[in-house]
Design a protein around this nucleic acid. Structure first.
Lengths: 330, 330
DNA sequence: ATGAAAGCGCTAACAG
DNA sequence: CTGTTAGCGCTTTCAT
């Protein structure tokens, strides 16, 4: 009690105990404490190693978890370590709740997981899995990018998508919708891609094979945008003079002075904080969906938190190089 | 016993138990096990989030640890989370041994840590700390890079160093030694840098301000090399025609088709395996009773394992430009 | 205000 | 081979 600071012991006993503890270099064993308390105080976080945006999220996750009295347990997704495996290790560690950063698990897996313990998905929606999710309004983000480009006079705007990656479907949808709204539906062009540099390189080659076709490209994320950017430049295309490029995530990459990429920013600190809060709420209230298990269809108490994106305009976007310059007409 | 796979129970009982366990989704509680066994079976790994080379190391660390019967516990170093803090959390988790990826802790901190439990440092030497270390013969790596460049006719070879980053001192030394050995000591030029893209950008500007000076640059690592590469190219310098560039780490970055960077490769899988082995050895050989009180360091001399680097030649190195056509920046 | 005792889930040692 | 038992270090409850 003394060591834990619980009121009860007298000041005299307190002194005594404290001194003895110091003498013996006594440290309470967290293992025994966990065993007895029947709660680990552990918050499992699944992330992808080497992913810049995940590093940003982790940055905010640690203080948020600490503030709620949880300890963070990391599990890495790697080329040779699947998400299922990473999740498994978190469950085995007796985490009380799980935060999954940009997972690609399907709804069934997510639902099965959420039946065991509170799960919050970050960076994508999880429509039918019945789990809480925190993500950016990605459709709004790509729409904002399209709007910027249109206001700069661009019409032939392509989108290199992120395939099945988290958020890709909505970014694609936002692009399509915005193009349509601007009367540019005939110009819609979605190039299949991915969330890495290689995809950007491939997309660049596709674009280069269509000379004079596009004056702007919205990439699926920053890494893709960088591959695109470098490949186009090496092929002699001037960015942003000939082609404007917009990325997504506003990662460290985008902010590098020599990249200086216009990009859609996600509020990583807020996402992290909300993710921890969401788990905390579940843990305090009815913990799992064990009892009244509505698989999310009825909108029950499954939370989907949407954050607004923010377009950060930098040096890779400029007025369209079209024959007749079109003033910013909105 | 069945669940743990210990010989003893009959096949019949085994069947029974296994089925019941599956029915109940039973999982042995690692907490109780740890408490009773008086050992956690945990191997702590400190890494830097977002660092490509660390991701590569982690990749190999997981299977290696599993093979030795250890579970990996990750602790991330981040902008707002110091190494000391990350290490602290690993110790609190009752890890039996620690693997530190490219730490920058000083000798005193390392020594204090190693007095508590077995510690292996990966990616740099730890001369006076009395801890085991696994790292590449970095001096040899940069020497090989210099040798390649010299054999291509380069003489004015600069080195952008990595300041106090892991391995930097030796890479710098290797560069200096190799230059001297080739009779180029008068050409030695070390530009202070770091292990990130920004440092490459700064170094590029330094080089650009010295027209006609250098025809080749050895960067402190791949990220630095990429910043350098892009900045020089954007300034109109042809790589490798005007200037050759060599990186260090052979990370995913270097292998990207549009970067195609000549780089010094470190054998990450071997480093990971050896790191786990080293910890395992210490843990087995240590019984605390050697008359001394140095817990983790019992079990013999400090081991420093050196691995040979390998130069991977790609597209950023080429014969030196003839003196007549001295490039603006080189 | 303090002490005593029970028990968290597991493992190891021992008895049938 | 199988069943029983003690106890890891802590927290909590109940008696003083």
């Amino acid at each position: 009690m003394v060591i834990r600071g619980v009121p009860g012991p007298s000041a005299a006993s307190r002194q005594n105990v404290l001194r003895a503890a110091a003498d013996l270099d006594f440290r309470p064993d967290p293992t025994a404490r966990t065993l007895r308390r029947q709660r680990s105080g552990l918050l499992g976080v699944l992330f992808t190693a080497g992913e810049p945006f995940h590093a940003e999220l982790l940055e905010a996750l640690y203080p948020a978890a600490e503030q709620c009295g949880y300890e963070v347990v990391l599990s890495a997704v790697l080329a040779t370590r699947t998400e299922n495996r990473a999740v498994e290790s978190l469950v085995t560690s007796r985490c009380e709740g799980l935060i999954l950063l940009g997972p690609q698990l399907d709804s069934a897996d997510l639902a099965a997981l959420a039946a065991k313990l509170p799960v919050t998905v970050v960076g994508r929606s999880a429509p039918d899995a019945g789990v809480d999710s925190i993500h950016t309004a990605d459709a709004m983000g790509s729409a904002a990018a399209v709007d910027l480009l249109v206001s700069l006079g661009h019409e032939r705007i392509a989108h290199v998508d992120g395939g099945r990656r988290p958020g890709s479907a909505e970014r694609r949808r936002g692009y399509r919708t915005a193009m349509r709204r601007r009367g540019l539906q005939s110009q819609v062009r979605v190039i299949p891609g991915d969330h890495d540099e290689e995809a950007g390189v491939r997309a660049a080659h596709t674009l280069l094979a269509e000379p004079g076709r596009h004056t702007a490209v919205l990439a699926g994320n920053d890494r893709c945008a960088v591959g695109l950017l470098d490949t186009l430049r090496r092929a002699g295309v001037q960015v942003p003079t000939d082609v404007s490029i917009v990325g997504y995530d506003d990662s460290r990459l985008a902010r590098l002075p020599y990249i200086d990429l216009t990009s859609v920013q996600q509020d990583a600190p807020a996402m992290a904080r909300l993710a921890v809060d969401t788990i905390g709420t579940r843990l305090r209230g009815d913990s799992t969906g064990a009892g009244s298990d509505d698989t999310g269809s009825a909108g029950g108490d499954v939370r989907e938190i949407l954050l607004d994106p923010r377009l950060i305009v930098r040096g890779t976007t400029a007025p369209a190089p079209s024959p007749r310059h079109r003033p910013a007409a909105g």
